[in-house]
Design a protein around this nucleic acid. Structure first.
Lengths: 107, 107
DNA sequence: AAAATTACTTTGACAGACAGAGTAATTCGA
DNA sequence: TCGAATTACTCTGTCTGTCAAAGTAATTTT
């Protein structure tokens, strides 16, 4: 499992990227992350909903209530134009971070 | 400049790696990081010395006072065997983090 | 003598991740 | 039909790493 200190700061990217693909709700994102990473990383619920709050406050995502299929009512999230622009920025930043850290750890 | 939130958790690795090359003192490390990254990342003094304290407490590094050449007295840091083992671990972790994040951001 | 540079330390604040606990709705087996 | 399991979201408080700001101290340069 990945330590929280090194994933820190990348959760916004991961979640925005998943929402870019299509509108999604919290629980779905949580399961999707576990699935795609083969359980190597699992986002904690408290963390996930904190990310939503942060992103929505910055107007990078928007939410709307969706239909209930099984279990509690779902709240769907949608990426905004601002969110798309921000995502591009942080993807670039991620590439730079990789370069910089590898400068030390691969040398 | 790299934001502190995304470098967070990687400073231990970078500093341990620099001390692995040879014994170094704080100011030197600070300058070396700026130099190697071409100023794309500069570690803040308060942060650097906090890292030293943390690593020394965990017995991953040891310190000794060195000669004064110019300016204040230097405190040199040396990596311990425990530190070397730990460094190996976190380098592996870094590789895994890259894989996981790229799973989302490259897909 | 003053200013610049080298070198280290401490305090307090902030933000992100998370543990733990709770609420609520639906499905499904006994 | 009752209760357990699952789906789904929310809130409070805590911990940790980073950093701003301020300070101490020694040496070199002007």
């Amino acid at each position: 499992m990945i330590r929280s200190d090194i994933i820190r700061g990348h959760l916004d990217s991961i979640i925005l990227r998943l929402i870019l693909e299509k509108d999604r709700y919290g629980y779905e994102i949580s399961k999707e992350i576990s699935l795609r990473t083969d359980n190597r990383f699992q986002i904690k619920e408290a963390t996930l909903y904190a990310v939503f709050q942060r992103l929505e406050k910055k107007e990078l995502i928007e939410s709307y209530l969706g239909g209930v299929s099984q279990g509690g009512k779902r709240k769907y999230y949608k990426i905004t134009m601002l969110g798309k622009a921000y995502l591009n920025e942080i993807v670039t930043e991620w590439k730079e971070l990789k370069e910089i850290i590898d400068l030390f750890l691969e040398g």
